[in-house]
């Protein structure tokens, strides 16, 4: 599952992390690790959520931790193309007003 549900494209300036399928307690640690690793080596990280069918609170928390890390280290972090389900969860917690969402 970890091989399939997350991959990334990276250059010196930007890392785009593509997540798909379901993100829950069983794999959110992998998302978190990937985001934090990318932020340590790249000035800007974007997580593409277009193909995420379900994300639980631990998955959303991984995004929040990414933003927390980026803000405290002068990096840029954002989300892109959240699926309808992801967007509605972000809106429920009003995190749509916190993240940069493209």
């Amino acid at each position: 599952m970890t091989e399939d549900f997350i991959h990334f494209d990276k250059n010196d300036e930007l890392c785009i992390i593509y997540v798909s399928g379901e993100v829950d307690l069983s794999n959110s640690a992998e998302v978190r690790k990937t985001i934090l690793s990318a932020l340590k080596t790249t000035p800007e990280v974007v997580v593409n959520l277009a193909h995420v069918e379900y994300i639980d609170s631990s998955g959303i928390a991984a995004m929040v931790e990414g933003l927390q890390f980026a803000n405290s280290h002068g990096k840029t972090f954002g989300l892109s193309k959240p699926s309808k389900q992801v967007r509605s969860i972000l809106e429920l917690a009003r995190l749509d007003q916190v993240f940069r969402i493209d």
Binding site: S57, S58, I60
Partner: peptide
Amino acid sequence: FTELDENTIRIISRMKLEV
């Protein structure tokens, strides 16, 4: 019920309070 670290637990529980 979980083995999440404290930072993640803090974020999730406060997120639910926001909800």
